[in-house]
Deep mutational scan, measured.
Amino acid sequence: MKVMIRKTATGHSAYVAKKDLEELIVEMENPALWGGKVTLANGWQLELPAMAADTPLPITVEARKL
Rank of each mutant, 00 (worst) to 15 (best):
M1I: 14
M1R: 01
M1V: 14
M1F: 14
K2C: 15
K2E: 13
V3M: 03
V3H: 01
M4D: 07
M4H: 08
M4A: 08
I5W: 02
I5P: 01
R6H: 08
K7F: 07
K7V: 08
K7H: 07
T8D: 07
A9E: 12
A9P: 13
A9G: 13
T10V: 12
H12A: 05
H12Q: 04
H12F: 15
S13Y: 15
S13F: 14
A14W: 07
Y15L: 11
V16K: 01
A17C: 15
K18P: 10
K18Y: 15
K18S: 15
K19D: 15
K19L: 15
K19E: 15
L21C: 14
L21W: 13
E22G: 06
E22T: 12
E22D: 12
E23V: 15
L24V: 13
L24K: 11
I25V: 07
I25S: 00
V26E: 05
E27S: 13
E27I: 09
E27L: 10
E29Y: 06
E29M: 06
E29K: 04
N30A: 07
N30C: 12
P31K: 12
P31C: 09
A32S: 13
A32G: 14
L33T: 03
W34L: 05
G35I: 03
G35S: 04
G36H: 04
G36R: 01
K37I: 14
K37S: 10
T39K: 10
T39M: 09
T39Y: 07
L40Y: 01
A41P: 03
A41H: 06
A41F: 05
A41R: 07
N42G: 07
N42L: 04
N42K: 00
G43T: 01
L46A: 00
L46E: 00
E47N: 07
E47Y: 13
E47W: 14
E47K: 09
L48S: 00
L48K: 00
P49D: 03
P49V: 04
P49Q: 03
P49A: 03
A50R: 11
A50M: 14
M51E: 03
M51W: 05
A52Y: 06
A53P: 13
A53Y: 11
A53S: 11
D54W: 07
T55K: 04
P56L: 10
L57W: 07
L57P: 01
L57V: 04
I59R: 06
V61C: 04
V61F: 06
E62T: 14
A63Q: 02
A63S: 06
K65G: 09
L66Q: 06
